[in-house]
């Protein structure tokens, strides 16, 4: 099972014989790009399983800037794939994900939930047991406590929602 989950990959195909690191990739061979190993290679990511944003200190451009660089050692990550078949949604995705996360962090406090005796409930963050199998890997449902950071922030959210409903959503059909 561990092997299976680690083998998250993109596949690619060679149109000509190619030598890479002394190994022949014959024309037409399928090449698997293991995204888990690329992102958890100890040679680049020390203490790879630790969540440490400081790894990216100084790496704060959008992912498309790094994907366009010819230096693969300088890539931030391969979350959007690589090469000519890079995810065409990279620009949308970068904005979507950043805005989603920054608005959530602006608005809410995220904490462990507590059980009936007040003890914090641990989350299973393990990639093998806490995450789904499949084509798209998702965190399995987990308990946590989410509270708004202030009444003023709640008011701002409601005001912006009403505004955008009027300016944008109302133009379009709903309930399709």
């Amino acid at each position: 099972m561990r092997e299976e989950k680690r083998a998250q990959f993109l596949t690619t195909k060679s149109n000509s014989d190619q030598w890479i690191d002394g190994k022949l990739l014959p024309k037409g061979a399928s090449v698997f790009i293991n995204l888990w190993d690329i992102h958890h290679d100890e040679r680049r990511w020390e203490n790879h399983d630790e969540f440490d944003p400081d790894r990216y200190a100084g790496y704060t451009m959008v992912a498309s800037e790094y994907a366009n660089s010819s230096n693969y050692d300088k890539r931030d990550h391969y979350a959007y794939g690589n090469g000519r078949r890079l995810c065409p949604g990279i620009h949308l995705g970068e904005r979507n994900i950043f805005l989603g996360i920054v608005k959530l962090l602006w608005a809410f406090r995220f904490e462990k939930a507590t059980d009936s005796s007040g003890k914090p409930i641990d989350i299973d963050t393990d990639y093998q047991t806490g995450y789904t199998e499949g084509f798209l890997i998702n965190a399995r449902p987990f308990k946590c406590k989410i509270t708004s950071r202030s009444q003023a922030r709640e008011n701002t959210i409601m005001r912006e929602f009403a505004q955008v409903s009027q300016d944008v959503f109302s133009k379009y059909e709903t309930g399709l």
Binding site: F9, L10, T11, A57, H77, I137
Partner: peptide, 28 residues
Amino acid sequence: YVTQVVKESQRWRPIGGLGFPHTLTAGK
């Protein structure tokens, strides 16, 4: 720093391969 948090999320728990077969052109 928020950008670093986002990038680290994408590295720490990759959401998986978009497992579509690609085709490389010669000389790539």
